[in-house]
Amino acid sequence: MTAPGADPVHQRVRLQGLDCHALHLPGGDRVLVAEHGGQVLSWVAQGRERLYLSPTAVLDGHAAIRGGIPVCWPQFSLRGSLPRHGWVRQARWSFIAADLQAQSPRLVLELRPAELLPADAGPWAHDCRLEVTVAPTPGRLEVTLAVFNMGQQPLPFTGALHTYLALSDAETATVTGWPDPSSRQGWDSMTDTPCRVEPGLSLRGEIDRILPAAPAALVMTDGNQELTIEQSGWADTVVWNPGADKCAAMSDMPNGDERRMACIEAAQALSPVSVPPRGVWAGTQRLSLVHPS
């Protein structure tokens, strides 16, 4: 890796079977984005990795990658007729630009989904373009998905930035920040029933909830690590941990690693967005250290 310097530095790098782009900030923070899936794989801030990437993740450019920040689109999970989480997380995105302005360096990748439609995706009649912008600043990472509808009909979709956070120990980690009481119900995907929205949740064990986006920042607390998690554009927040049994059944995640991660996702899961003809939609998630040095 390149040593910190006076200016941001962009590097093209190879990670096993993946073509990737690294962006290094002068203070030492860095981010790594794969062309496969347009997926953030690593965010190092204050010398510590803040995202979880499974040590047994498949990095051959042909499968979904377990960890980082997968882009789920145009379908969230199995809430529709398409493959789970859509297909763009397994498509090769095109690298567009590395903007190295000192105040707002960023990496930009794009995808035209109709050109990379897999055989199992079903019919797809929309002319559109996706753009992922990854913008790190010291102690902070901002990721934005933009959807450009270039066609003549509305474009509905669900999806998510499926963010895997690295934890010291999920047994004691929490996420807090929903209002008490909330005016909206959530959805417990484990029981497939509505659930109350509590002010905070433990990240211990199996959990799979779709919750309303909080009006202010959420706070993830994990030992001496605290992150604020903000989102805009996305209506929902998903909190997920596979738990021990499901983790043990996953071929791309080691036994016990459910304690090393939890997903807190900016999502559009319960109801679709509809982008009007020639319109643009954008959704952002921001991760920030609470006490950056």
Rank of each mutant, 00 (worst) to 15 (best):
H126N: 10
L141E: 07
P242V: 13
P26S: 14
P8H: 06
L117V: 12
E171C: 09
R84H: 07
E49A: 04
R14E: 13
W281S: 00
G139C: 09
A22D: 11
G61Q: 02
L51I: 04
S274K: 09
L289K: 08
G200Y: 11
G177S: 06
Q153M: 13
V88M: 00
W281F: 04
G17I: 04
P136R: 07
G122N: 05
P83G: 01
R50S: 02
H62L: 14
N149L: 03
G80H: 05
Q185L: 11
T174Q: 09
Q225T: 15
S168Q: 08
G200M: 12
R129Q: 12
R50W: 03
T158K: 00
A248R: 03
A214T: 02
W281V: 00
W87T: 13
P254D: 05
M253P: 10
P212G: 15
A267P: 14
L161G: 00
L82R: 00
P276D: 04
G279F: 06
H36S: 03
R30A: 15
M1D: 08
D208L: 07
P154W: 03
T2R: 12
E171G: 14
L59K: 07
G279D: 04
L227K: 14
G38L: 01
A269T: 06
L32Q: 12
L100P: 03
E230Q: 06
H291K: 15
D120W: 09
E230G: 06
P105H: 04
L15C: 12
M1L: 13
D257I: 10
S251D: 11
A248F: 02
G186H: 07
D60Y: 02
N241W: 03
P292N: 03
H24F: 11
V143D: 02
G186W: 08
L18E: 01
A3P: 03
E171A: 13
L161C: 03
P156G: 01
P70C: 01
G68Y: 03
L145Q: 05
G61D: 00
L18P: 15
G139N: 10
A135G: 00
A248H: 02
A64K: 02
R106H: 09
T163I: 05
R66S: 05
